[in-house]
Design a protein around this nucleic acid. Structure first.
Length: 860
RNA sequence: GCCUGCGUGGUGGAAUGGUAGACACAGGGGACUUAAAAUCCCUAGGCGUAAGCCGUGCGAGUUCGAGUCUCGCCGCGGGCACCA
């Protein structure tokens, strides 16, 4: 018998599947459809174990659904625009396009040996002009439908690289690449009007039952709905001037002691123009970093403007107006009223500037030191009961929430303000001053203004060269800005020479609709309604938790926008029926120290012995379960694993041990164990095949029944495991059944039935080995195409059951009885039990609990 | 600070309120071998010779029965964050 040789086997079966066209998605009205999708990768050029785990999970589902008679769509593509390609071009002088497509080729070559059941005929990359041209068409439709806005926005500007930076790219107030001090600049940018849909996007989360609760919650917090009161303070002496504020705690209105405005508030800007002290202060405020630590450390700073406003509840009560550094212009109205007694931040501020502290309520239960007496600010929960010490709207004692409602009602009745719901979610700025992205298809004309490009002119394709010269990516700024032949075009409206928009789209746009494009990847329109109606929605989406907020939220917005513009059916407002967030693949770091600096050792240089790690004779530190990182020398290359053990081993290992939503640690010993197990199955299959030849047609005995009962239980458990993302538990059952089978004395026929079923149950995880076993045992056609085994209910019912016998809830013994033994007989049997007799010691039990088929509990 | 999730052997982890520790790794013992590797078998929560006792972060509670439900602590992780 030849040894288990995955390299040869796997290539052969991958070819067989391809020739059979098994994974080409075909619309079939006779079958239920199933669309399973893993988040498509960025073509970094390097497949990592996280990809392998992600795609293997999707593949298990896809293969299982195929075997259960579904028309399956399981596509793959590449999220191919973005900064790394430009950075690579800057670093090594190549072209982002060449770099990207070369990487895609490499990654496809790395993915194919994994034996994934992908429909490669639908593959595309978002940097294909055929894709981004349709994205431009979508942009134009959305623009026309009023879903897109153009407005000024404050951005982080890197003056050296001459580009806008995302918040994450600003480190300690400096550009991440250039190291230059980042400036705040106001630029006119394009925005998707996602905030208009904030409430809808929030409410629809409730319907996403098959999403992780955690993801729904993260989205809900991100959208950040709050209810409060918006009202205006009249400025003393300037009767036409008012300051609008928004508050979620209008119940504390009588505790107001100042009004604060942001440095970018219109009134602050007005004062800034005439008062150098104000100008200096505002400039100082704008400098502040945006990082968490910077905010933590930043001291509350304020400047008295000299303006005074009237309290809405008492025209004789005047409050000072401060410009303060902790007030944000882009939330609410950019102005607040400060209530030091009930807000920790306002209390800090009030103490620093010696402003009054006025408690408006105190807790019903418990004693506190009032903030005016040096205590902390008292902020009750919305359900907490409070006693009012100052009355605004007739309240005396009620919950915080009722107080808020009463205060809003009071304000509305008096005509002071209105109750309003606000959201934290802001519009999605999509403009990027970069080359390697989807060009925004508009033209700026001196006469006509901003003019959308004509659809027949799409795609607005990125220029590869600059005339006859290659584009120089080493010059700071956007190459499209200094590309006259691309930039200068006739106005689509009047025909006069005008300038093309040189900004490109945020790469999140590319990934917000790709899953719809897979339903008709070569269509001349963004989607085809018929195909989209058939395949949408994505039945199961799988990806990392890092995309829990932005990518999924943007996709949900896009689905709604595509319905409004006629590119998706109504049913697809929520495009992902079920979502699963998988954990990472981690690996230990082997660390030592040399000259005070850490040294990271490659796993292949490390010897493991008795739970300790050595390099040569020196023990090194093991840091378990660390994220794989090139700089820590703990990256495991999937291709190396596939060449060493085969794809089936890699697939089997990443699914075993840890539950899919948690991290799994890659260990060499674990991978070897997986490989050995697959080898054992190979050997077992061979043994069973020979047994049949040597002793055909033996009668089935009791051993057959035992084996087949175990087989049907395994079918039930594995099926359940696969359907509920319990892959690790399913694999444990498969291990157990393999052990049962290898020890079984059942007839050759029964053993063959068992191993063929085992092959089928393993096929979603180890498809190549399964085909091999299937064929050897005389299975017809491809194992991957064979119908999924169904557990026989009759075989799941045992004739006898073993019941644990508990005394006072602790297990003391067990009895094996016929399954349907009458209750009184069972009771008698239990009472006669030796352990029970001993515990009873002559007395009679206080209580006897019998749960049929489960347990017996004697209470003494 | 607010919101959240999680604490089970040496390790990863099983367990519809019903026999805690399935399955796997690492460990220990053995068979085969001159030896090693490979393979196979046995063992394995702790204490105890044993009967038995104790055990799911800690403390209470509900229940005939709690890893699972409730409350309060402690510890670790994730998300958001000068958001009014």
């Amino acid at each position: 018998m030849p040894a288990y040789a995955p390299a040869e086997i796997e290539a052969r079966w991958q070819k067989a599947w391809e020739e059979a066209g098994l994974f080409t998605a075909k619309e079939d009205p006779e079958k239920p459809k199933y669309y399973v999708l893993e988040m498509f990768p960025y073509p970094s050029g390097r497949l990592h174990m996280g990809h392998v785990r992600n795609y293997t999970m999707g593949d298990v589902i896809a293969r299982y659904k195929l075997a259960t008679g579904h028309a399956v769509l399981h596509p793959m593509g590449f999220d191919a625009f973005g900064m790394p390609a430009e950075n690579a071009a800057m670093a090594s002088g190549g072209h982002p396009k060449d770099w990207t497509y070369a990487n895609i080729d490499t990654m496809v070559d790395q993915m194919k040996p994994l034996g994934l059941s992908l429909d490669w005929s639908r593959m595309f990359a978002t940097c294909d002009p055929e894709y981004y041209g349709q994205q431009q068409a979508l942009f134009l439709d959305m623009l026309e439908a009023g879903l897109i806005d153009r407005k000024p926005a404050v951005v982080n500007w890197d003056p050296v690289d001459m580009t806008v930076l995302a918040n994450e790219q600003v480190i300690d107030g400096k550009g991440w690449r250039s190291g230059a001090e980042v400036e705040k600049r106001e630029l006119t940018q394009w925005f998707f009007k996602i905030s208009d849909m904030a409430d809808e996007l929030r409410e629809a989360l409730d319907g996403l039952d098959d999403w992780p609760a955690k993801v729904r919650l993260m989205q809900e917090n991100w959208i950040g709905r709050s209810r409060g009161l918006q009202f205006a303070f009249d400025v003393v002496g300037e009767e036409d001037k008012q300051i609008e504020v928004y508050t979620t705690r209008p119940d504390t209105l009588l505790g107001a002691s100042f009004v604060g405005i942001a440095a970018d508030h219109p009134i602050a800007k007005e004062l800034e123009a005439v008062n150098p002290a104000v100008a200096a202060f505002c400039a100082e405020c704008r400098k502040g970093g945006t990082t968490a630590e910077a905010i933590e450390k930043a001291e509350k700073m304020g400047l008295d403007t000299g303006l005074r406003v009237r309290h809405p509840a008492d025209p004789d009560w005047e409050l000072p107006v401060y410009i303060a550094n902790f007030i944000l212009m882009d939330y609410g109205t950019g102005a607040i009223f400060g209530c030091p007694a009930h807000d920790a931040r306002d209390l800090d501020f009030a103490r620093k500037y010696e402003l009054p502290v006025i408690s408006t309520y105190v807790p019903v239960d418990g004693e506190i030191t009032l903030p005016e007496d040096g205590g902390e600010a008292y902020v009750p929960g919305k359900e907490e009961e409070v006693t009012y010490v100052k009355l605004l709207a007739g309240e005396e004692q009620q919950t915080g929430l009722a107080g808020i409602d009463a205060a809003i009602a009071w304000a509305e009745e008096k005509g002071v303000g209105t109750g309003q719901t606000k959201f934290r979610l802001r519009d999605w700025g999509l403009s990027r001053q970069r080359y390697w992205g989807c060009p925004i298809p508009v033209v700026h004309c001196a006469d006509c203004g901003v003019v959308p490009e004509k659809k027949e002119n799409l795609p607005v394709e990125l220029p590869y060269d600059q005339g006859n010269e290659p584009i120089d990516f080493s010059i700071p700024g956007n190459p499209l800005d200094r590309h006259p032949t691309w930039r200068d075009v006739p106005c689509p409206a009047c025909g006069k020479m005008a300038k093309r928009e040189t900004d490109t789209m945020d790469t999140f746009v590319d990934s917000s609709w790709y899953f719809t494009r897979f339903t008709a990847p070569r269509a001349e329109t963004p989607t085809e309604m018929e195909a989209a109606s058939y395949w949408m929605n994505v039945d199961q989406y799988i990806g990392g938790i890092e995309h829990a907020i932005l990518h999924l939220l943007y996709s949900r917005f896009f689905a709604r926008a595509m319905i409004k513009t006629g590119h998706l059916p109504e049913k697809s407002a929520e495009p992902f029926d079920a979502m699963f967030t998988q954990g990472m693949v981690t690996h230990a770091i082997y660390k030592s120290e040399k000259g005070g600096r850490p040294v990271y050792h490659y796993p292949e240089d490390v010897t493991l012995e008795g739970g300790k790690a050595y390099v040569g004779d020196t023990e090194v530190e093991i840091v378990p379960s660390a994220k794989m990182s090139k700089s820590k020398n703990n990256v495991v290359d999937p291709n190396a694993i596939v060449s060493q053990f085969g794809a089936d081993t890699a697939r089997w290992f990443v699914l075993s041990d840890s539950p899919p939503e948690r991290d799994v640690e890659w260990t060499a010993s674990g991978a070897e164990a997986a490989s050995k197990h697959l080898g054992r199955i190979w050997t077992l299959s061979d043994k069973i095949a020979k047994m049949e030849e040597e002793a055909p047609g033996q009668a089935r005995g009791a051993d057959d029944e035992t084996l087949l009962r175990e087989m049907h239980k395994t079918i039930r458990d594995v099926t359940l495991g696969v359907e509920s993302f319990g892959f690790n538990a399913a694999i444990a059952k498969l291990y157990a059944f393999t052990a049962t089978l290898s020890k079984s004395k059942a007839s050759p026929g029964a053993q063959r039935e068992a191993i063929m079923t085992l092959a089928q149950l393993m096929a979603p995880m180890t498809p190549h080995l399964s085909e091999e076993v299937w064929t050897l045992q005389g299975g017809e056609g491809l194992c991957a195409a064979a119908p999924w085994p169904v557990a026989d209910e009759a075989m799941l019912v045992e004739a006898t059951v073993t019941l644990p016998v508990q005394i006072n809830g602790k297990r003391r013994d067990e009895v094996t009885v016929p399954k349907d033994m009458p209750k009184d007989e069972l009771e008698a049997l239990v009472l006669a039990n030796e352990a029970v007799q001993r515990a009873l010691d002559g007395s009679s039990p206080k209580k006897l609990i019998v749960v049929p088929g489960r347990i017996v509990n004697v209470v003494v």
